[in-house]
C-alpha cells in the first residue's frame, strides 16, 4: 500500500524504522516487527545506515512484505551509480514495494568501510527525478521500459531543526520540484522549532511526518547534540532524563518525552516517523501515550 493513499484520505500516518542486521539471520527482526509494529502504517528499512555495511534494504523490505507488513524502501545514493539505482527501483516495483524514500546518504568515511569509494553519481534530488522518469516508461538513458511502468510513493527527508533551516527549505523545494510526495524529518526534540519550521513549509502543501527518537539517556542526547547533524536536544530534556535514572533506564521517561513532542506537534503535521534505534518494544506504549493507538 502506498503511504500517500493515507495522506490523500486525510489520515494521520505512522511509520517506524528498522535497521537490518550485519548478517543473514533476520528472523528475530521480523518477529519483533510483528510483535511491536502492528500499530504502524509502514516500516522504513534503512539502507546501510551511517555507511555501516548490513544486509540489504530491498531484501528486508521483501521479507517484511511477505510477512504482511508495508515496507518503505530507503534508497541511498552512496553505494550505487544510476544504473544500479534504476535497477533496484525496478526490482522493488517488481516485488510490489512501492514506497521509496530517496536519500543522498552519509559519506563512506562516516561508517565502517572508510576505504570504500563514495559513489554519489546521483543525489536525493536527482533520484526523485529518476523515479519520475521510470514512471513515465523510460530510463535515464532515454530508453523505453518494457510493459507497464512502475509507480512509486516518492518520499524524501528534511531536517527542521538544522542550524541552516533556510538552506533546508530551499532543498525541500527542490525535492518537491523533482517529484517528492511526502517527507519524513530528522528527529525533533524541540517542538517550537518544528512548529516554526512547519509554518514555513506548509506553503508547499506536501505531507510531513514528524521524526521521533525515544531518548534513552542524557548521554545519548549529548552524543547526538555533538555528532548528529540537524539534532539538538534542549537542556530541559537533558535534565528530565537525568532526574530519575531508573525511570530513564526503563524507558519510561523517554517515552513520556517522545509522546509529549508528538502531542505538541501533531496539529502541525500529517504523520509521525519513529526511529526506535533498537527500542521497538517501546513503540506500543509510545503510540498509546501519544493518542495514536488504534
Amino acid at each position: 500500500m502506498k503511504i500517500t493513499d493515507l495522506f490523500e484520505r486525510g489520515e494521520f500516518a505512522v511509520s517506524a524504522e528498522v535497521g537490518p542486521p550485519k548478517g543473514i539471520h533476520i528472523e528475530e527482526m521480523i518477529e519483533d516487527a510483528k510483535k511491536y509494529l502492528g500499530g504502524v502504517d509502514a516500516i522504513n528499512v534503512t539502507d546501510c545506515q551511517s555507511s555501516v555495511m548490513r544486509v540489504g534494504s530491498l531484501a528486508v523490505c521483501k521479507e517484511l512484505k511477505d510477512a504482511g507488513m508495508n515496507p518503505i524502501f530507503q534508497l541511498a545514493c552512496r553505494d550505487r551509480n544510476r544504473i544500479a539505482l534504476e535497477s533496484d527501483l525496478l526490482s522493488a516495483a517488481m516485488f510490489g514495494i512501492d514506497n521509496v524514500l530517496a536519500l543522498t546518504g552519509d559519506h563512506t568515511k562516516m561508517g565502517d568501510h572508510p576505504q570504500a569509494k563514495p559513489v554519489f553519481d546521483l543525489d536525493s534530488v536527482s533520484l526523485l527525478h529518476t523515479m519520475c522518469v521510470l514512471e513515465s516508461g523510460k530510463d535515464l538513458g532515454g530508453n523505453d521500459l518494457v510493459g507497464e511502468p512502475p509507480k512509486f510513493a516518492k518520499g524524501a527527508v528534511v531536517s527542521p531543526c538544522s542550524d541552516s533551516v533556510d538552506a533546508q527549505l530551499v532543498k525541500m523545494e527542490k525535492k518537491i520540484e523533482a517529484g517528492a510526495e511526502f517527507f519524513q524529518t530528522q528527529a525533533v526534540f524541540d517542538s517550537e522549532k518544528f512548529i516554526r519550521f512547519m509554518e514555513r513549509a506548509k506553503q508547499f502543501g506536501k505531507p510531513v511526518m514528524l521524526g521521533i527518537i525515544i531518548p534513552k539517556s542524557a548521554g545519548m542526547c549529548k552524543f547526538m547534540n555533538n555528532n548528529v547533524a540537524g539534532i539538538s536536544v534542549p537542556d530541559s530534556i537533558l535534565e528530565e532524563l537525568k532526574a530519575d535514572k531508573e525511570k530513564t533506564k526503563a524507558g519510561i521517561t523517554g517515552v513520556e518525552i517522545a509522546a509529549r513532542i508528538i502531542r505538541e506537534c501533531k496539529p502541525y503535521c500529517q504523520g509521525v516517523h519513529i526511529m526506535s534505534l533498537g527500542w521497538e518494544s517501546k513503540i506500543p506504549s509510545l503510540l498509546e501515550q501519544s493518542g495514536l493507538a488504534r
Partner: peptide, 15 residues
C-alpha cells in the same frame, strides 16, 4: 565532499 550538484546533504553541522 560528495560533489553534490543539487544543494546540500543533511550532514551540515554548524556550517
Amino acid at each position: 565532499s560528495k560533489s553534490l550538484v543539487n544543494g546540500p546533504c543533511g550532514g551540515t553541522k554548524d556550517g
